[in-house]
Amino acid sequence: MRLGLGLFQAPKLRYAEDIEAGRLVEVLPDFPPTPTPISVLYPRSRQLSPRVRVFVDWLVEILGPKLEA
């Protein structure tokens, strides 16, 4: 148990390391919550800046494989 939180629901990706290390225990693994979508929003009326494009590509590269698992 971490900090005495008891039971709570949170993104598994955020606590995967704690679960693997045995600091947290997953309860009801056969009944996961529905996935929460992640969206990137930007003004449609403007052209996407190179900085934003690089950031979006980075998010897809980093988070994509973890979210698919």
Rank of each mutant, 00 (worst) to 15 (best):
P65Q: 07
V54A: 15
Y15K: 00
G4Y: 03
L67P: 00
W58A: 15
R23H: 11
T34D: 12
E17S: 12
Y15G: 01
D57S: 04
W58D: 15
A10L: 10
L3T: 09
Y15N: 00
P37F: 06
L41W: 12
R46W: 07
A16N: 01
V54F: 05
Q47S: 14
E26N: 02
K66H: 12
R46Y: 06
P37S: 08
W58F: 14
I62L: 08
A16E: 13
P33W: 04
Y42K: 11
D18M: 14
G6A: 11
I19G: 01
V56Y: 13
A16H: 00
L63C: 12
R14P: 00
Q9S: 15
P33I: 00
L59T: 02
P43Q: 13
L67I: 11
R51L: 13
K12S: 08
L28R: 14
V25M: 11
K12A: 12
L24F: 03
L48Q: 08
F55G: 09
P37H: 02
V52K: 03
V60G: 03
E68F: 01
D18A: 10
P43T: 05
L48S: 08
A10D: 09
L28F: 14
P50H: 09
T36H: 01
D18G: 01
P35G: 07
L59N: 08
G6V: 02
G64T: 04
L24N: 00
P50Q: 14
Y15T: 01
V25K: 15
D57C: 00
P32C: 03
V56L: 12
Y42S: 15
D57Y: 02
S39I: 10
G22N: 07
R53V: 05
R23E: 08
Y42D: 07
V27T: 09
V52I: 11
L24C: 03
P29T: 08
L67S: 07
Q9P: 00
W58S: 11
L3E: 13
P50C: 11
F8T: 14
D18N: 06
F8A: 04
L67C: 04
A10K: 03
E20F: 01
L28M: 13
A16K: 06
E26K: 05
D57L: 04
Q47R: 14
F31C: 10
V25Q: 15
P32E: 05
A10M: 06
D30R: 08
R53Y: 07
P37K: 05
R44K: 14
A69M: 00
D18F: 11
P11V: 00
L67M: 13
F31N: 06
P29S: 05
V52Y: 05
A69F: 02
D18T: 00
I38Q: 07
I62F: 03
L48D: 09
Y42Q: 09
L59P: 01
L48G: 04
S45C: 07
G4L: 03
